[in-house]
Protein backbone atom coordinates (compact mmCIF):
# COMPACT_ATOMS: atom_id res chain seq x y z
CA UNK A 1 0.00 0.00 0.00
CA UNK A 2 1.36 3.43 -0.93
CA UNK A 3 0.47 6.06 1.63
CA UNK A 4 1.01 9.76 1.01
CA UNK A 5 1.20 12.71 3.39
CA UNK A 6 -0.10 16.02 2.04
CA UNK A 7 3.04 18.14 2.37
CA UNK A 8 1.97 21.71 1.78
CA UNK A 9 2.26 22.89 5.39
CA UNK A 10 2.07 21.51 8.93
CA UNK A 11 3.51 18.62 10.91
CA UNK A 12 4.30 16.51 7.87
CA UNK A 13 7.56 15.18 9.33
CA UNK A 14 5.81 13.68 12.38
CA UNK A 15 3.26 11.82 10.24
CA UNK A 16 6.03 10.58 7.97
CA UNK A 17 7.94 9.22 11.00
CA UNK A 18 4.80 7.57 12.39
CA UNK A 19 4.16 5.83 9.05
CA UNK A 20 7.78 4.66 8.82
CA UNK A 21 7.40 3.22 12.34
CA UNK A 22 4.38 1.29 11.02
CA UNK A 23 6.49 -0.19 8.22
CA UNK A 24 5.21 2.11 5.47
CA UNK A 25 7.45 4.06 3.12
CA UNK A 26 5.45 7.28 2.77
CA UNK A 27 5.31 9.63 -0.20
CA UNK A 28 5.21 13.40 0.32
CA UNK A 29 2.40 14.72 -1.85
CA UNK A 30 2.53 18.25 -3.28
CA UNK A 31 1.41 17.70 -6.88
CA UNK A 32 -1.21 15.92 -8.93
CA UNK A 33 1.33 13.40 -10.23
CA UNK A 34 2.38 12.48 -6.67
CA UNK A 35 -1.28 12.15 -5.73
CA UNK A 36 -1.78 9.71 -8.61
CA UNK A 37 0.90 7.40 -7.14
CA UNK A 38 -0.77 6.81 -3.79
CA UNK A 39 -3.52 4.49 -2.49
CA UNK A 40 -4.22 6.35 0.75
CA UNK A 41 -3.52 9.83 2.12
CA UNK A 42 -2.85 11.57 5.42
CA UNK A 43 -3.85 15.19 5.95
CA UNK A 44 -1.50 16.52 8.66
CA UNK A 45 -2.00 19.00 11.46
CA UNK A 46 -1.33 22.62 10.54
CA UNK A 47 -3.41 25.61 9.56
CA UNK A 48 -6.51 24.39 7.73
CA UNK A 49 -6.97 27.76 6.01
CA UNK A 50 -3.40 27.72 4.68
CA UNK A 51 -3.47 24.08 3.57
CA UNK A 52 -6.79 24.50 1.73
CA UNK A 53 -5.56 27.63 0.02
CA UNK A 54 -2.22 26.16 -1.07
CA UNK A 55 -3.98 23.08 -2.44
CA UNK A 56 -6.12 25.34 -4.61
CA UNK A 57 -3.22 27.47 -5.79
CA UNK A 58 -1.24 24.41 -6.81
CA UNK A 59 -4.14 22.65 -8.51
CA UNK A 60 -4.57 19.65 -6.25
CA UNK A 61 -7.72 20.75 -4.45
CA UNK A 62 -10.10 19.26 -7.05
CA UNK A 63 -8.02 16.12 -7.66
CA UNK A 64 -7.94 15.34 -3.91
CA UNK A 65 -11.68 16.00 -3.60
CA UNK A 66 -12.34 13.65 -6.52
CA UNK A 67 -10.09 10.90 -5.11
CA UNK A 68 -11.93 11.14 -1.77
CA UNK A 69 -15.27 10.88 -3.56
CA UNK A 70 -13.95 7.86 -5.46
CA UNK A 71 -13.16 6.12 -2.16
CA UNK A 72 -9.50 6.83 -1.43
CA UNK A 73 -8.88 6.14 2.30
CA UNK A 74 -7.82 9.31 4.13
CA UNK A 75 -6.82 10.07 7.71
CA UNK A 76 -6.83 13.66 8.95
CA UNK A 77 -5.54 14.94 12.31
CA UNK A 78 -6.71 18.32 13.66
CA UNK A 79 -6.50 20.58 10.57
CA UNK A 80 -6.91 17.33 8.63
CA UNK A 81 -10.21 16.67 10.43
CA UNK A 82 -11.44 20.13 9.42
CA UNK A 83 -10.40 19.48 5.81
CA UNK A 84 -12.40 16.22 5.74
CA UNK A 85 -15.58 17.72 7.21
CA UNK A 86 -18.57 18.41 4.99
CA UNK A 87 -19.31 21.54 7.00
CA UNK A 88 -17.37 23.74 9.43
CA UNK A 89 -18.27 26.35 12.05
CA UNK A 90 -16.18 29.38 13.08
CA UNK A 91 -14.46 29.16 9.73
CA UNK A 92 -12.70 31.93 7.88
CA UNK A 93 -15.10 33.45 5.39
CA UNK A 94 -15.19 31.31 2.25
CA UNK A 95 -12.93 28.64 3.76
CA UNK A 96 -13.06 25.45 1.70
CA UNK A 97 -12.70 21.83 2.76
CA UNK A 98 -12.19 18.67 0.73
CA UNK A 99 -15.20 17.18 2.53
CA UNK A 100 -16.35 13.57 2.27
CA UNK A 101 -17.06 12.99 5.95
CA UNK A 102 -20.66 13.83 6.90
CA UNK A 103 -19.83 15.78 10.05
CA UNK A 104 -19.95 19.38 11.22
CA UNK A 105 -16.71 20.48 12.89
CA UNK A 106 -16.19 23.56 15.05
CA UNK A 107 -12.75 25.10 14.54
CA UNK A 108 -10.64 25.96 17.62
CA UNK A 109 -13.56 24.60 19.68
CA UNK A 110 -11.40 23.82 22.72
CA UNK A 111 -10.10 27.39 22.68
CA UNK A 112 -6.86 29.20 22.01
CA UNK A 113 -3.34 27.98 22.75
CA UNK A 114 -3.67 28.73 26.50
CA UNK A 115 -6.42 26.08 26.54
CA UNK A 116 -4.45 23.47 24.59
CA UNK A 117 -3.98 20.30 26.63
CA UNK A 118 -3.04 16.65 26.69
CA UNK A 119 -5.00 13.86 28.29
CA UNK A 120 -5.47 10.07 28.21
CA UNK A 121 -8.62 8.91 26.46
CA UNK A 122 -10.13 5.62 25.37
CA UNK A 123 -10.24 4.88 21.64
CA UNK A 124 -12.78 2.41 20.33
CA UNK A 125 -10.50 0.02 18.42
CA UNK A 126 -11.15 -2.99 20.64
CA UNK A 127 -8.33 -2.22 23.07
CA UNK A 128 -9.15 -0.96 26.57
CA UNK A 129 -5.77 0.79 26.89
CA UNK A 130 -5.98 4.56 27.07
CA UNK A 131 -4.29 6.62 24.41
CA UNK A 132 -2.29 9.84 24.92
CA UNK A 133 -4.18 12.58 23.09
CA UNK A 134 -2.59 15.99 22.44
CA UNK A 135 -5.07 18.77 21.62
CA UNK A 136 -3.66 21.99 20.12
CA UNK A 137 -6.17 24.75 19.35
CA UNK A 138 -8.23 21.71 18.54
CA UNK A 139 -11.60 21.35 16.80
CA UNK A 140 -14.40 19.04 17.90
CA UNK A 141 -17.26 17.40 16.06
CA UNK A 142 -20.66 19.02 16.65
CA UNK A 143 -22.82 16.91 14.35
CA UNK A 144 -22.30 13.34 13.25
CA UNK A 145 -24.11 12.24 10.08
CA UNK A 146 -25.39 8.87 8.92
CA UNK A 147 -22.69 6.26 8.49
CA UNK A 148 -20.22 8.07 10.74
CA UNK A 149 -19.05 6.27 13.87
CA UNK A 150 -17.68 8.04 16.95
CA UNK A 151 -14.46 6.38 18.20
CA UNK A 152 -13.48 8.75 21.01
CA UNK A 153 -14.92 11.71 22.92
CA UNK A 154 -13.79 14.35 25.42
CA UNK A 155 -16.45 15.87 27.69
CA UNK A 156 -19.09 14.29 25.39
CA UNK A 157 -17.65 16.04 22.32
CA UNK A 158 -16.61 13.56 19.63
CA UNK A 159 -12.87 13.90 18.90
CA UNK A 160 -12.32 10.80 16.73
CA UNK A 161 -14.73 9.65 14.03
CA UNK A 162 -14.71 7.37 11.00
CA UNK A 163 -16.74 6.39 7.97
CA UNK A 164 -16.08 3.45 5.67
CA UNK A 165 -13.00 5.10 4.12
CA UNK A 166 -12.24 8.20 6.19
CA UNK A 167 -10.76 8.64 9.69
CA UNK A 168 -10.44 11.94 11.55
CA UNK A 169 -9.10 12.93 14.99
CA UNK A 170 -9.06 16.38 16.65
CA UNK A 171 -5.88 15.38 18.45
CA UNK A 172 -2.34 14.67 17.24
CA UNK A 173 -1.22 11.04 17.72
CA UNK A 174 1.76 11.90 15.48
CA UNK A 175 3.23 13.98 18.34
CA UNK A 176 3.53 10.89 20.55
CA UNK A 177 5.52 7.68 20.22
CA UNK A 178 2.32 5.59 20.28
CA UNK A 179 1.37 4.77 16.69
CA UNK A 180 -1.89 2.99 17.45
CA UNK A 181 -4.06 5.43 15.48
CA UNK A 182 -1.82 5.24 12.40
CA UNK A 183 -1.88 1.44 12.59
CA UNK A 184 -5.66 1.54 13.02
CA UNK A 185 -5.92 3.70 9.89
CA UNK A 186 -3.77 1.33 7.86
CA UNK A 187 -5.21 -1.97 9.15
CA UNK A 188 -8.84 -1.14 9.90
CA UNK A 189 -9.67 1.68 7.49
CA UNK A 190 -7.35 1.71 4.47
CA UNK A 191 -6.76 -2.03 3.95
CA UNK A 192 -10.44 -3.10 4.09
CA UNK A 193 -11.45 -0.14 1.91
CA UNK A 194 -8.82 -0.95 -0.72
CA UNK A 195 -9.74 -4.66 -0.62
CA UNK A 196 -13.31 -3.77 -1.48
CA UNK A 197 -12.25 -1.74 -4.49
CA UNK A 198 -10.29 -4.69 -5.81
Amino acid sequence: MKVGVLSLQGDVREHVSALIACGIDPIEVRSESELAEIDALILPGGESTTIAQLSEIFGIYEPIKQRIEAGMPVYGSCAGMILLADSILDAKQGQKTFGGLDITVRRNAFGRQVDSFETDISFDDGSSDLIKAVFIRAPWVERVGVGVQVLASVDSHPVAVRSATLLATSFHPELTADHRIHRYFIEEVAKPALEKVK
Binding site: G46, E47, S116, I136, R137, H172, L175
Partner: peptide, 15 residues
Protein backbone atom coordinates in the same frame (compact mmCIF):
# COMPACT_ATOMS: atom_id res chain seq x y z
CA UNK B 1 2.93 20.88 28.80
CA UNK B 2 6.15 20.85 26.80
CA UNK B 3 4.46 18.69 24.20
CA UNK B 4 1.52 21.08 23.84
CA UNK B 5 3.82 24.11 23.60
CA UNK B 6 6.35 22.62 21.19
CA UNK B 7 3.56 20.85 19.29
CA UNK B 8 1.90 24.17 18.53
CA UNK B 9 5.07 25.25 16.71
CA UNK B 10 5.17 21.95 14.80
CA UNK B 11 1.79 22.89 13.31
CA UNK B 12 3.24 26.10 11.91
CA UNK B 13 6.01 24.34 9.97
CA UNK B 14 6.34 25.12 6.30
CA UNK B 15 4.43 28.33 6.85
Amino acid sequence: TGRVKRGMAEMLKGG
